[in-house]
């Protein structure tokens, strides 16, 4: 979903930010692993380094210069590193280094990471969706992530991630928005919330409001705003 030129620029920017946030030793380790991953046929280095990464990088919050934030926003509207940790960005960047010429191999390698991922790995994998090749191949993974009950995983998909709005069908998109309300997420952080308002979602939200009222529960004020948009 990001063209090659922009992806190259983002790759460079991410690398620059990671370097600024890592010790020189940690960066040396990561750069070495990235080189190995680019050339290995199998998955040994990828699997080892993807899992091990936070032990080397630490998990502190990313510090990003305002001019870099602005550049990223211009290259990929709707995306932001707001609230990210260094290991999260480093993992995403590592995935961006994977050779993608052989589609089957590329898909197999990343899908395998999904099946054995722990929570922070899932966060990184879903955060990486906008930067992966073969955009349409990740739709079912994104949908599966929306079914997750793990808050941070949901937020990785919902917050400042342009992939869902770009790639999901209306039905899956609507599920994500509904789930955001059900799990009390900050819906203002959902990229594309207004642009993708639609009639089916409006109807479902109306039913939801009625159900909440019947159960003597409060209704999120944002729902009424969305109902207005969907008219």
């Amino acid at each position: 979903m990001v063209d090659i030129e922009k992806k190259k620029k983002l790759d460079k920017l991410f690398q620059h930010i990671i370097q600024q946030n890592l010790s020189s030793d940690a960066w040396a380790w990561l750069a070495d692993k990235a080189e190995r991953i680019k050339t290995e046929e199998k998955t040994l280095q990828l699997n080892l380094s993807f899992a091990r990464l936070p032990r080397m990088s630490g998990k502190s919050n990313l510090i990003v210069q305002p001019e870099d934030l602005a550049k990223i926003a211009a290259l990929l509207p709707g995306f932001s590193l707001q609230g990210w940790t260094v290991d999260r960005l480093a993992r995403v960047w590592l995935l961006m280094q994977l050779p993608d010429v052989d589609k089957m191999v590329y898909l197999k390698k990343i899908k395998n990471l999904f099946t054995a991922a722990e929570m922070n790995e899932l966060v990184a994998l879903y955060s990486a969706l906008p930067f992966l090749q073969y955009t349409e191949e990740w739709v079912s993974h994104c949908e599966e992530g929306i079914r997750s009950n793990i808050g941070t995983v949901l937020e990785a998909i919902m917050y400042h991630n342009p992939y869902p709005a770009h790639a999901l069908s209306a039905a899956a998109w609507n599920q994500m928005v509904l789930k955001a309300f059900f799990t009390e997420k900050d819906v203002d952080q959902i990229t594309g919330l207004k642009e993708r308002a639609n009639q089916a979602l409006t109807q479902t939200l109306k039913d939801y409001v009625e159900e909440r009222l019947a159960a003597h529960r409060t209704v999120h004020p944002k729902i009424y705003e969305l109902l207005e948009l969907g008219k």
Binding site: N149, I150, G151, L154, F182, T183, E184, R217, T218
Partner: peptide, 10 residues
Amino acid sequence: MCCNDNIQER
């Protein structure tokens, strides 16, 4: 079936 739903309410 569960989890992190309606935390504020809870």
